[in-house]
Amino acid sequence: MLKITKAGNHGILLPQLSIGLDYSGSKAEHVFVSHGHADHIPWKNRGTVYATPPTSSFMKLRGVKYEVQELPFQKTLETENARITFYPAGHILGSAMTFVESDFGNLLYTGDYRTPPSPATEGFELPDKSIDTFITEATFSLPVYKWKSYEELKAEVTGFVQEALNNEYTPVFLAYNLGKAQEIMFLLKDLVHPIQIHGAGYKLCEVYEEHGFPLGNYESYDRDTCEGKILICPGSALNNGFASNVKKKRIAYCSGWAAMEARRSQLTVDKLIPLSDHLDFFELIDLCEKLQPKITYITHTPNPNVVKHYLDERGIPSQFLDMAAGPND
């Protein structure tokens, strides 16, 4: 069986194979990066780092200085001790699940993932093999988190824009600069209405365009010309003066956390749209049931015992992969 060590707050180490997964430590010869969000990028590195081509581009744009080896989906890399293959994770563009095969057994590490996948990604695909060890995030780990269909969410996003514009309000979406912002733009591109995105998100949009995901009629945010356009920014930007000169605006918060009505008063927004780039609770349980791994490790979750309870009921062995230590330490 593969030994697994949770490397503090950043990454997983497979010590028998000298392999790190989203890992920033010094004990891995080979490190595989699941996607371009900052909490998964190895900012300190001493080994060879591999990522999909879009993730490599995002890493460079976000300030990574070391060389990244590009590994396309479903192209297997062989090291001295293992065979490693990336599979599309459906989370953001370039996001990958890492499948590791070795003499100690195999392992599927999800990173962050979504199924059904975001339409602004390469999709979602699993290895066509039985899984020994499954490491899954469980960000939305309660049964209250059940997402609407893609069609319903697209209708909410476009409907919010149309209603705001029809009433001479400027529509503003609160969304992460990488992934969520571009998904919203992808959903709105057919409206052909000008979009302005926060500057930090704007520079990342080119990667989507380069990989075949058109994002519509967009430009970088300009305070002097933003009124009447569709605006997209992270929530923190509003506190720093984003569109503060626009008096008539409607604000929508887009996140899986929007499934909780309390967020409306916490954030002072006009609409909550539960558009998540993670899978919901029931999709997580269903996927574990489909895979039937020998062991499932649950990570990145405030409620591991709830997930474990549902998996126990289905006869699927599982345990929490603590942020501070791995099960084999």
Results as ranks from 00 to 15, higher is better:
320 F>H: 15
304 P>D: 08
102 S>Y: 09
26 S>Y: 11
124 F>I: 05
242 F>I: 02
191 L>K: 04
211 H>Q: 06
313 E>H: 13
264 R>I: 09
20 G>T: 05
186 F>S: 03
171 P>H: 02
261 E>L: 11
265 S>P: 01
17 L>K: 03
254 C>V: 06
184 I>Y: 02
39 D>T: 13
297 Y>F: 15
165 L>F: 00
121 T>W: 04
322 D>S: 15
46 R>K: 14
225 T>S: 12
130 S>G: 11
15 P>N: 07
184 I>L: 15
321 L>H: 04
47 G>R: 13
125 E>Q: 15
286 D>C: 08
90 G>E: 13
171 P>C: 02
300 H>T: 14
230 I>D: 00
96 A>G: 04
321 L>C: 04
105 G>N: 09
194 P>R: 00
326 G>V: 09
290 K>A: 14
8 G>A: 06
249 K>N: 04
267 L>F: 09
298 I>P: 02
89 A>K: 06
234 P>I: 02
140 F>R: 03
234 P>L: 01
187 L>C: 08
9 N>D: 13
66 Y>V: 12
17 L>D: 01
95 S>F: 06
272 L>I: 06
156 E>R: 08
75 K>Y: 12
30 H>T: 08
88 P>Y: 00
143 P>L: 07
189 K>Q: 14
290 K>H: 14
62 R>T: 08
47 G>W: 09
177 N>L: 07
17 L>W: 06
6 K>D: 11
254 C>N: 01
214 P>N: 10
202 Y>M: 10
166 N>M: 07
154 K>G: 05
15 P>V: 09
127 P>T: 01
229 K>Y: 00
103 D>Y: 05
224 D>L: 15
104 F>S: 11
273 I>R: 05
281 F>W: 04
42 P>C: 12
88 P>K: 00
271 K>S: 07
326 G>K: 06
279 L>H: 13
145 Y>N: 05
120 A>E: 09
241 G>Q: 08
319 Q>F: 13
233 C>W: 01
267 L>S: 12
147 W>T: 11
35 H>P: 04
129 K>D: 13
6 K>T: 10
23 Y>L: 10
266 Q>E: 15
105 G>A: 09
37 H>C: 10
232 I>H: 00
39 D>I: 10
137 E>W: 04
317 P>G: 00
163 E>G: 00
27 K>W: 10
278 H>L: 06
226 C>A: 14
311 L>K: 08
17 L>A: 01
329 D>F: 14
210 E>R: 14
271 K>R: 15
222 D>L: 09
216 G>L: 02
291 L>I: 06
227 E>M: 03
220 S>W: 05
79 T>H: 03
51 A>W: 03
239 N>L: 13
179 G>L: 02
207 V>W: 07
215 L>W: 00
27 K>C: 11
290 K>N: 13
111 G>I: 11
307 V>P: 03
232 I>Y: 00
111 G>W: 09
34 S>P: 04
185 M>N: 05
114 R>A: 12
146 K>R: 15
